[in-house]
Amino acid sequence: MTDPQNWAAPGANQPGAPYPPQGTPPPGAPQNPGYQNPGYQQPGSPYPGGQYPGAQYPGAQYPGAPGGPGTPPGPGAVAPKPGVIPLRPLGVGEILDGAIAYIRANPVATLGLAAIVVTITQLVEVPLGIFALGQLAGLTAAPGDPADPTAIAGVLVGSVAGSAVGALVSFVAITVLSGMLIAVLSQAVLGHKMSIGAAWAAVRSRIPGLVGLTLLIALLLVLVAGVGVVPLVVLAVMQANAAVVVLVGVLFVLLSWAVALFLGVSWALAAPAYVLEGVGVTAAMRRSFQLVRKQWWRVFGISLLGGIIAVIIGAILSLPFSFAADPMSDPIAGVSIVGLLITSVGTIVATTVTAPFSAGITGLLYFDQRIRREGLDIELARTAQQG
Results as ranks from 00 to 15, higher is better:
4 P>I: 09
6 N>L: 15
14 Q>G: 07
15 P>F: 00
15 P>M: 00
16 G>K: 02
17 A>C: 10
19 Y>Q: 15
19 Y>P: 00
25 P>F: 11
28 G>H: 13
37 N>K: 09
44 G>N: 05
48 P>E: 03
48 P>D: 07
56 Q>V: 12
56 Q>Y: 11
59 G>S: 03
62 Y>R: 13
64 G>C: 07
72 P>D: 06
73 P>I: 09
77 A>F: 08
81 K>Q: 15
84 V>N: 08
87 L>M: 12
90 L>G: 10
98 G>D: 07
112 G>D: 08
118 V>C: 09
125 E>Y: 11
130 I>P: 05
131 F>Q: 12
132 A>K: 09
132 A>S: 08
146 P>Q: 01
148 D>V: 09
148 D>P: 12
151 A>F: 07
152 I>K: 11
155 V>C: 09
162 G>W: 07
163 S>E: 10
168 L>Y: 15
170 S>Q: 13
170 S>F: 03
175 T>G: 08
180 M>T: 01
183 A>Q: 00
185 L>C: 01
188 A>M: 09
195 S>W: 08
204 R>H: 12
205 S>C: 05
219 L>H: 07
220 L>G: 09
220 L>R: 03
221 L>A: 03
228 G>L: 06
237 V>R: 11
237 V>I: 14
239 Q>A: 05
240 A>S: 15
241 N>E: 15
242 A>L: 15
253 V>A: 15
263 L>Q: 13
264 G>I: 04
266 S>V: 13
269 L>H: 14
270 A>T: 04
271 A>L: 04
292 V>E: 06
303 S>T: 14
304 L>H: 05
310 A>Y: 01
320 P>E: 12
327 P>G: 04
343 T>A: 12
351 T>S: 14
352 T>Q: 04
354 T>M: 01
356 P>Q: 00
360 G>F: 00
361 I>Q: 04
366 Y>W: 15
369 Q>W: 05
373 R>H: 07
